[in-house]
């Protein structure tokens, strides 16, 4: 599954990381190096093995339906690059 510059461009867009055109090819090579190394996982027999998503062997805890948070607009907006009238402000979004 070799990665080419076009794949890097697509993945960089998915990850929203602006990547100059002249970086695509070197990045592709770098990623291929890493992925080739990762390919050794194919040596492992994982027949019938359940994927392990967590180290914690307990079910999810549930909390009560009680309002314990919110009403902290100042904190929520305290680090905003731009805000106004209680809103975050971002460049115009066009659907």
């Amino acid at each position: 599954m070799a990665i080419d510059a076009a794949t890097v461009r697509k993945v960089a867009h998915l990850a929203r990381i602006k990547t100059p055109e002249d970086r695509l090819e070197p990045l592709a090579q770098e990623l291929n190096g890493i992925l080739n190394w990762i390919e050794q996982l194919n040596e492992v027999d994982v027949q019938g093995v359940e994927p392990m998503t967590s180290n914690v062997a307990q079910p999810l805890r549930l909390r009560e339906d009680v309002v314990t948070d919110g009403a902290k607009v100042d904190a929520v907006l305290s680090n905003a690059p731009k805000s106004a009238d209680g809103f975050f402000v971002v460049p115009k979004v066009v659907d």
């Binding site: 909390r63 009680v66 919110g70 009403a71 607009v73 929520v76 209680g86």
Partner: peptide, 20 residues
């Protein structure tokens, strides 16, 4: 998150830092 659900609150008043 423990922030309230509702309609008609002022902007970002029903927001916890988890929601944000």
């Amino acid at each position: 998150s423990g922030a309230a659900v509702g309609f008609g609150a002022g902007p970002n008043e029903q927001v916890s830092l988890v929601d944000a």
